[in-house]
Amino acid sequence: MSNSQVIDCDFDYYSPKTVEEALEYLKSEGVKVLAGGTDLLNDIKTGEIVPKALVSILGINELDFVEFEHGFRIGPATLLCKIEEDDRIKKKYPALCEAVNSMGGMQIRNMATLGGNLCTASPGADAAPPLIVLNAKVEVSRKNGRGEIERRTLPIEEFFTGPKKTVLEQGELLTSILIPEPDASSGSAFIKIGRVKLDIAKINCAVYVKGEGDICKNVRISLGAVAPKPVRAFNVEKALAGKKLTASLLAEAAEMVSQDISPRNARSTAVYKTQAASVLIQDTLTTAWNRSGAGREVKE
């Protein structure tokens, strides 16, 4: 039985001011990144993680930013509450805001970071589906043998490799999240189903859709907690792309989600998740579609 009252293992603690310094600490085995701590400290208390040292990244200014100058970039150490409060994000990327708002109580969102949610890589991580449908990329940094910082950028879909697993290796740090400008007459939305309103997802869903008249020009759908990592609903997308969006088409297409997911009985049943996924896609896509242009609605 775990003991959530105290942490009974010792570790070192560092709070670097620069990415360069942080990367140096992170080279050693057993050194973990501490951001908001809302997942990591639980894992330490339950004994799932026994760190040698923690590197707190909340004091690194280079990692805490929201900027719109060269495309939209968010620093991984940005607190969730700052994303929620940012009207520019709310307007352009409502799916991301909705996902962030659904994460935990006010206190959690005041502590936890966007990067933390991604790096924990829970199959139901709420920030993942919106970033996936928004075509986000992540920048990963490390120090090479010569002590220089090397950066690589990859699509967020490739960042997750399995339950609680990412491409990050020891010594690497997520340093930026880049989200392209959404197309004109596009919309996005996020909806989650939990056991109660405040919960980790039983299943969650984000949709990005661009319309041309009543044609569904471009659609991306992503779901969480229905597979070892967040997935795209490619079969559903294919059935919708380039077609006139009607309720019956949407219902028919959404059924195909069963080919895109492989749910387990976590927090629900696989059968329920499959049935709910279809409904959730329809609901989320309808909301995104309504946002994609004035007067747009899904017709019967």
Binding site: M1, N42, T46, V196, K197, I200
Partner: peptide, 15 residues
């Protein structure tokens, strides 16, 4: 739930 409230769910004010 292993004794953790994360997986013992109760209704909240929004429910």
């Amino acid at each position: 739930c292993k004794g953790l409230l994360t997986n013992y769910k109760m209704l909240g004010p929004e429910d």
